[in-house]
Simulated assay, not measured.
Amino acid sequence: MKISNTLMLLGLFAVSPLSQAVTGLAFVHGTGKQTDALNDYWTSEFVNSVRQGLANSSNYTVINCDFDQYMWDEAASGCLVNQLGQFIDAKNIDSLILLTHSNGGNIVRWVLSNPTWDARYPKIVNATSRVIALAPSSAGTPLADAVSEGNVFETSLGWLLGYDSDAVKQQQVGWMSYYNSTWLYGTSGRPGLGKPFETVVGSDVDSAIWDSDSYCAGYQYQVALETTQNWLDSCSDGFLNCSSQSAAGTVWFTDKQKTAGAEPLSHQQSRRACFKLDSLIRNHI
Rank of each mutant, 00 (worst) to 15 (best):
V173H: 02
F87I: 00
V81F: 04
T100Q: 11
C242T: 09
Y215W: 13
A55Y: 00
T141S: 13
L7P: 04
I107A: 11
E149T: 07
N283S: 09
S203H: 11
T128K: 02
E74P: 00
S212I: 09
V81G: 06
W110Q: 03
Q257G: 15
F153R: 11
F197D: 12
I88E: 09
S44E: 10
Y41F: 12
N126I: 11
Q245P: 13
M176E: 05
G189H: 03
F27M: 15
A55V: 06
N180G: 15
N106K: 06
Q34H: 04
A224S: 09
T141Y: 06
N283W: 07
G140P: 06
H29T: 03
L134S: 14
L193T: 15
N56L: 02
G104N: 01
A224L: 13
E45D: 14
S244N: 14
I124M: 09
A26T: 05
C242E: 06
L240H: 03
Q269R: 12
T6K: 00
I281D: 02
L38C: 08
S243K: 08
T199D: 02
S156V: 15
A217F: 03
K195T: 13
A119V: 14
K2T: 13
A26D: 09
W175M: 11
L99W: 02
Q171T: 11
S113V: 02
C79Q: 00
N151W: 03
Q20R: 12
T116I: 05
